[in-house]
């Protein structure tokens, strides 16, 4: 489980960073999205993974950390997803405006000569 998650974060993050370096706005936004998936998984992994444990206390239980999952990283991920979604949408609008104003999809307005 740890290996799969680590590989997923690594592959998503690596692809994201590579795309971030590309000169087209479409590649940039896909890169940022992939990076944010990687980061969300990373935050999630910081709560460790007790398999099959719900993030709530059973009634009457003593609160032994081994029996329930840490709910805080899950709520952090939720917040990060919402904020990331909103900023990506905002960025998309700016990209459309740049496309309209410069007539190209290069991140600097026009490709270097």
């Amino acid at each position: 489980m740890e290996l799969i998650l680590a590989l997923a974060i690594g592959v998503l993050g690596g692809s994201g960073v590579w795309l971030l370096m590309r000169p087209r706005t479409f590649q940039l936004i896909i890169g940022l999205s992939l990076l944010s998936y990687a980061v969300n998984l990373f935050i999630f992994s910081m709560g460790r993974f007790p398999i099959g444990a719900p993030p709530i206390l059973e009634p009457g239980s003593s609160g032994d950390p081994a029996t329930f999952a840490d709910p805080l990283p899950q709520s952090l991920v939720l917040t990060a997803i919402v904020i990331g979604f909103a900023t990506t949408a905002l960025f998309l609008v700016v990209m459309l405006a740049a496309r309209g104003l410069t007539g190209g999809d290069h991140v600097d307005g026009r490709p270097p000569r």
């Binding site: 971030l20 706005t25 940039l28 940022l32 900023t87 905002l90 960025f91 700016v94 990209m95 405006a97 740049a98 104003l101 410069t102 991140v107 600097d108 307005g109």
Partner: peptide, 10 residues
């Protein structure tokens, strides 16, 4: 502004 904004936001 849009060109500079694109870099700033990313």
């Amino acid at each position: 502004r849009v060109k500079a904004g694109l870099h700033y936001i990313s």
